[in-house]
């Protein structure tokens, strides 16, 4: 494998890891506050549709992004209503949200555009176009560093850079602010937070809303940057892979980056069977490679390699004692 192939492979790794990273950080906020969220996939799907639809109608991708975030946020609030206010089962609520998004997006897409559950293809300003970083063209001829900078680091859409910036931001918010301390505490011991006079419900709703916003950006990335338009079920289980990455990352932001990059690499390799064959000399089936993140997550969860310990109060509704 030559250097250019490697750069190309890493480039598509970054592209494929971006939605996973955003969704993974989304899940991180929610689960660190003690709200399990298996509805990441549905929220991404809803955001993907609404951002593509509004971008197609208005011609502005930024309006599309806002619409996507709003759609994802609405589903997040529904999740909050079910699991925080009415103390329902968070897992069941997540399942419902996934189906709601899978059904409604196709239904509305058919009603608005009559194209068999897809949006029209997005062109021009209705898409997030690649950004060329300064001096990319000048540096490109330089050996080694040139292609690295021009191909791998430069030339992504703004959402990619936002996703990568979200990692240190999340770390800072969680570990260096009062809000972050309280958020983590509410996922471990909500009663203690309540005793300290801080609203458990308020904190959990805040976490769920942050989760909604990040999922919204992830979904918008799918339909307006990675691809040009919405197609049915386009999230393709990415929400579940993000969930797997979250466990893999042991609910920590920097680990989340490495986990999603790893899973992104698997995704990139899936499309380049020739590279794998050149690397290890055996023909590997793409389908089996696609299942690798899931298998690895099961192994991690089983504690055979390291141990993933979820937030202690995760999944349990908080009942104030009277």
């Amino acid at each position: 494998m030559d250097y250019m192939t490697l750069i190309q492979l890493l480039d598509s790794t970054v592209r494929l890891a971006t939605p996973l990273l955003l969704a993974c950080l989304a899940g991180l906020f929610s689960e660190r506050a003690g709200i399990f969220d298996i509805g990441l996939d549905g929220k991404m799907l809803a955001a993907a549709f609404f951002s593509a639809a509004i971008a197609a109608i208005s011609g502005s991708v930024w309006l599309g992004l806002l619409a996507g975030i709003a759609a994802s946020l609405a589903l997040s609030l529904l999740h909050g209503l079910a699991s925080i206010t009415f103390r329902g089962n968070q897992l069941i609520s997540g399942v419902a949200i996934n189906f709601l998004a899978a059904g409604l997006t196709v239904l509305i897409a058919q009603s608005w555009f009559q194209q068999g559950g897809r949006t029209p293809s997005l062109i021009g300003g209705a898409r997030f176009n690649p950004i060329t970083l300064p001096f990319a063209d000048q540096i490109e001829p330089t050996p080694f560093i040139g292609p690295l900078y021009a191909e791998l680091i430069s030339g992504h859409s703004i959402l990619v850079y936002m996703a990568f910036a979200a990692v240190p931001l999340t770390w800072w918010l969680l570990y260096r602010t009062r809000f972050g301390l309280r958020l983590r505490a509410v996922g471990e011991n909500p009663a203690a937070v309540d005793t300290a006079g801080v609203s458990v419900i308020g904190l959990r709703y805040a976490a769920v809303c942050i989760c909604g916003v990040l999922c919204g950006i992830a979904g918008a990335y799918l339909s307006t940057a990675l691809q040009a338009g919405f197609i049915k079920d386009m999230s393709a289980g990415r929400g579940y892979i993000a969930l797997a990455a979250l466990i893999f990352a042991k609910w920590r932001p920097w680990y989340a980056l490495w986990a999603t990059l790893l899973f992104g690499l698997f995704g990139a390799l899936e499309t380049r069977p020739d590279v794998i064959e050149a690397l290890i000399g055996i023909k590997v089936q793409g389908q089996l490679l696609g299942a690798l993140p899931y298998v690895m997550t099961v192994i991690i969860l089983a504690g055979f390699v390291g141990k993933a310990i979820p937030p202690r109060a995760g999944g349990e509704p908080y009942v104030k004692e009277r």
């Binding site: 079910a82 329902g88 419902a96 996934n98």
Partner: peptide, 13 residues
Amino acid sequence: VIQALVILFTGAL
């Protein structure tokens, strides 16, 4: 959608 609503109302809500 109907399936989702049934899960939502009979399960989560």
